[in-house]
Design a protein around this nucleic acid. Structure first.
Lengths: 346, 346
DNA sequence: TTTATTTACGCAAACGTTCCCGGTATAAAG
DNA sequence: CTTTATACCGGGAACGTTTGCGTAAATAAA
């Protein structure tokens, strides 16, 4: 069932004009007399004419749409980021096409190819936790295709990047644990391939060192799928709790990691923070309602989305190839709640 | 900065053929000799040719993309629905363009117009809670534009609709409260304009009647923005708790309504379920981790998204105008946890 | 050998726009 | 009265593709 729209030709025919005249009248060209303009404008209004964006795209060789690749939109951080992306994109006349990798490298590659073949003008990417090979993106980038990375960036490519200060976030979180008196602080981290994992573990380690605590390799566990799979978290936590010296606090470095930690503790009736304290990166809106309420490092997701989009569209609309790339680093925010602070627990 | 793609013309020129021959070779037409086909295929592969979807769209008068309008993607129910939509859409070669109304009628209208002007082939809509006037949608629908409603549907339009059995969901939830011994059961509902609100309140009322409890108008409060604004929830709850006979249980009929209820109770140190029990519609993944864990009515969001998309694409690809419309009703699921069941509380 | 048929390809129009390049009036300048 | 300028408008190509039609050469049938 197709839906017939009214075209410039219909207007031209109805008014006894040529398509060029109608086109020019609509674009308010000086070459068209005021009377003709008036006629055309009025008639277009009457029959509710809307220019065909497909035809325009073909002509202008740009689609005015940008692609987004994230692992999951059902993740607070990413849905908030997408909100930020949308707010800017729509303001600037772009629409967004969203694709999810579900943390799978294969699906990420497929999505990139799909989006690229759909003639989008640019791409906003947060890589999957499985991604090590970047050929699918480098390929496009090398041919001048605008790509902006956010949150999960890659060192190997020279593009705009928007991240949060992950080092500081983890440092502050760990420092907070130290100040609360915890001495055996473990880290539950995401995929080793991810930039954010490295940065966050860096902050964790530095905080330990600055506090005179020794960094213990066995206190660091990785979950390849960033907490998406409960079993991975379960295995990691079990490994941590089997250490000769059980950790008395955990710093979790991703949203799902943090909540699945809590789920594990609840299942095993491990009391938080009495048995073990928990702080984690999270952008959930309900960390205050959890049991116990969660201490978190929160990222300015909305702003990250906005900023990334501004950088991307700026690059898309730039006349000359962009050679100077920016890396914007936004500050994280620390929220202290019951899961680390015993004085807060009822 | 534009990104030059390789076209069929480039292939034709390089191989000394006409564009029609190349086109036909690529589509494996019987009119082309095996040798020519082989040459064309190999060369296209080599230079990584991808057909330009914009040009195809112009020719075929369809864009192979569908629009989605929801209030918030940062809402578990909708993000799960979108996952379902995507899974089907991508399988069938469509991409999706998502727009958010943020529960504003004005933004919904703007989004509809924007999407319609972007030559999408169909629309998946869950109306905003402010929406009463449907001209923006009826307009399109009357001209044969495929529209499928999901979750928040409207009676006034004859289209495919996919909903959950809201009546049953609310009925079961209320019945559960009755069985737990609660006798003064209030309802916190969303916008009065919404279909889901009416259906859910219907189930609530019927359950009361079937249990020999009297339905009390003052026990029903509406929040126009469906819990998005905490203040609305606060006012409604305050009104409920000021009734001469304070309610001993609350049935909340939307995601944010339910969680904001909990937030209110926590703030005021009202114990759940001891002072007041709470059950609500919610698709959150962490209702088991809340304090107390939440009894909820859960909707099969993913399946709803899949089903809606199948119906929509089926209508889009139908040769003849579709006149017979289906209304699919999926079953909700009840999860009993601490917020209603005292025996579960630690 | 002539005629009919098949095979394999090219030409050109179409989708909806924009825009370059013309062209024809009318008016002003010489 | 011719030249030049100005105002206004139309023709047609182009964007990348598909597809109906035409046609040359090769093959088969007569």
């Amino acid at each position: 069932m197709k839906f017939e729209a009214v075209t410039i030709k219909d207007i031209a025919k109805a008014l006894g004009l040529s398509t060029s005249t109608v086109s020019r009248a609509l674009r308010d060209s000086y070459e068209i007399s005021p009377e003709t303009k008036k006629k055309v404008l009025e008639y277009s209004e009457k029959i509710n004419y809307r220019p065909n964006p497909i035809a325009l795209s073909l002509k202008e060789k740009r689609s005015r749409s940008i692609g987004i690749i994230v692992c999951e939109i059902a993740n607070s951080f990413f849905s908030q980021t997408i909100n930020g992306i949308e707010s800017i994109a729509y303001d600037m006349g772009y629409n967004v096409i969203i694709a999810q990798s579900h943390e799978s490298y294969e699906r990420e590659v497929l999505n990139v190819q799909y989006l690229a073949s759909r003639s989008i003008d640019g791409l906003l990417v947060s890589v999957s936790s499985e991604t090590k090979d970047l050929e699918h993106l480098r390929n496009l980038h090398d041919r001048g295709f605008p790509i902006v990375f956010f949150d999960r960036v890659v060192d190997e490519m020279e593009t705009h990047k928007v991240i949060v200060d992950n080092f500081k976030g983890a440092y502050d979180a760990t420092m907070h644990l130290v100040q609360c008196g915890y001495r055996h602080i473990a880290a539950l981290a995401g995929s080793e391939y991810l930039s954010i994992t490295k940065e966050r573990l860096g902050g964790y380690r530095k905080a330990l060192e600055d506090s005179g605590l020794t960094y213990n390799e066995n206190y660091v566990q990785h979950c390849l799928h960033g907490g998406m799979l409960y079993d991975e978290v379960e295995d990691s936590l079990t490994a941590l709790l089997q250490q000769p010296q059980k950790p008395d606090a955990i710093m979790a470095s991703a949203d799902k990691l943090t909540t699945n930690c809590l789920r594990y503790f609840k299942k095993r009736k491990i009391r938080v923070p009495d048995d073990v304290a928990l702080i984690g990166f999270s952008n959930l809106d309900l960390t205050d309602l959890l049991s116990p309420s969660l201490s978190v490092v929160r990222q300015p997701a909305f702003e990250m989305g906005q900023l990334s989009t501004e950088l991307l569209i700026h690059q898309i609309e730039s006349k000359r190839p962009v050679k100077e790339f920016e890396q914007r680093i936004l500050p994280p925010q620390l929220f202290i709640r019951e899961s680390t602070d015993r004085t807060l627990v009822r």
